[in-house]
Structure formats: C-alpha cells, structure tokens
Design a protein around this nucleic acid. Structure first.
Lengths: 151, 151
DNA sequence: TTTATATGTAATATACATTGTTACATATAT
DNA sequence: ATATATGTAACAATGTATATTACATATAAA
C-alpha cells in the first residue's frame, strides 16, 4: 500500500557500487604488502557477492589508475598507489555513475518561465552538492579506514 | 551491451522528486501573492507530468509544513511561509527518500575484519556527505531562485 | 441545495538501472 | 601442458520511481 505515510520513504538500495569499491579498496590496503595480489574471488567472498561483480568494479578502478591486475596463476589485484595518498574522492570519481542530485528529464514547458529556468537552477544546485560532497570525501584517506578496521 | 566502456555509466534518472519539489516550490513562490491558490493541475502542466504525481509530492511538503492546500472550487496550494525563510534544505528534508551515499545491504562475512567494519565505516561516510550537502543546500533560499527565474 | 471543481487515495502498469549468475575467451605463471 | 586468474558477453532477477486511471471526499459558488 502506498499512502501519505510511506510514499517516498522507500530506502533505495541500488547503487552499492561506491560502498563496494570502498570495501574492496580497504581490503586491498590491509592485505597488500602481505602475500602479493588478491583474486577477485577472495574479494568477492569478503564482500559477499559474485566475483564478476567485483571484476566489473575493478575495471573502473583500473581505469582510474588506482589498482592493477595480473592474469594467470598467482595473479590478482594490487593497489597501485600508497594508501596514504588515496582518498575517498578518488574512489568516488572512479565509480561515479551520476551526480548525487539529479535534475528532471521532463520536457520543458516553453511558455512557463519557471519551467524554462529549472534546468539551469538544478544544474547549479547539483554542482554545489557535488562539490561540497567531494570536498568532504577528499578528507578521508584509505589509510584512515585501515586504522579504523584494525581498532 | 555492457562492457568496460559503459558499465556503470548509466545516468540514473530515478529520484526526480527533489527536482520536482524545487520546481513546484519555485512556481508557488512566483505565482502566490497573485491570484490565490494554484491547483495541482496547473503545477503539473508547468512540470510536465501527471497531477497525481504533484499531489503525492504536495502531501510530503504539507507534512513538512511548507505548503497548505484547500479543497473545492478555487482551491489549490499556497506557500505557508515566506519564500525568504525557506531553504533548499527544508525542501530536501521534506522529500528525502534516502541518504545520498548508501551502504551495502549485503550480509556481513563474520570472519573478515574488513567486512565487519564496513557498515560502521560507510555509515560515517554517508553522514559526512549528508551533512556537507545539507550545509550547502541551507545557503540557498527560495527567494534566490525567484530572482534567477525573473532575470 | 445542487453543481462544479479541487484534493486525497488506492491500485496497477510501465520503464529502467543495478545486481547476480552462467558461460566462455584469453592470458600467464608454474 | 596445465591450472588458474582476469576479461567480457548475455541474460535473468530484483526493486524503485514514475505515470495513469479511477473514484471518494470536501467545499466554494451558483
């Protein structure tokens, strides 16, 4: 049933990509320096998902130059940079699919001044939210998360 | 086709609610003080959607005490507070369905320290992003948007 | 009091992105 | 040569938001 009480109160559980990416990168931070590369299968176990989901994510992290992977026996993934130089903004930008706030894609009503202005207005708002968020994410380093996990 | 080039690059067009709410509130700001209340049908025309979509949104805005509505002939919706006292944070909080950054709902792997820590880690991150965003949204008043539209 | 018109609300259809899964090609260390 | 890892395609399953139709309810105005 959808009424005033719960309309719009669904919790969106799509877009786990950022959370998954942070998980993977944190795991690499803790395990690398240990016994070499980690396989997507082991990462998938820690995340509790399918290895292909992890591998798809890793392609994005590779494109952003955050990790590198090697094929074949004893292959797997390693961090490409030191954990104390990687921030959550780096990870966010690597896997970002869309802005946190999105405008509407509805057709503009050309005879309505408000409708005509909305795209520009929401674009500005989206940029503002994005900038504020990234500024915050930039303050958190992978090495900070490592500490948190080890506590 | 889904490959490395476009996997994760879909633009999510769900969650137009905030954009729609800003549109509606801006329209009310411009038109109120004019010829009394505005009907959901007229608002729907400006937004280019179905009146019911607008009415469902208005229920949320009413719960947040931002607008009030009257039934019957010549009925409709009016702003309940002055536009120079309403910020985009008020609107965001009224229609917010979930946090901008969400954690994963996957089951925790209890023998993995990273997996055990992730929920707390992502909760902190989500709160940080949320706070930063709200702080920004708090700086923009409906009266500012009115000016932008009238330019 | 009747009528027109507005909101309130339910039920359902539609659209679409993300995740999960299977299958297989490709590369590489041992 | 073989085992094992990544790379990639294809498709099913899931879940949320929007759109739409229909109707109940309230109220101003004739």
């Amino acid at each position: 049933m959808v009424d005033a009480e719960n309309y719009g109160t669904f919790i969106s559980m799509v877009n786990k990509q950022f959370a998954t990416a942070v998980h993977v990168m944190t795991a690499l931070t803790l395990e690398n320096g240990g016994a070499g590369p980690i396989s997507s299968s082991r990462l998938a176990e820690s995340v509790n998902t399918n290895p292909v989901v992890i591998r798809r994510l890793l392609l994005l992290l590779q494109k952003a130059d955050l990790v590198s992977s090697t094929k074949g026996q004893n292959g797997g993934v390693t961090l490409k940079r030191n954990a104390s130089t990687i921030t959550l903004e780096d990870i966010y930008l690597a896997v970002q699919t869309c802005q946190m706030i999105s405008g509407s894609d509805r057709k503009v009503k050309k005879n309505c001044p408000v409708s005509r202005s909305m795209k520009a207005v929401m674009c500005g708002v989206a940029t503002g939210v994005e900038d504020a968020s990234k500024k915050y994410l930039r303050t958190i380093y992978l090495s900070d998360l490592k500490k948190k996990v080890m506590e």
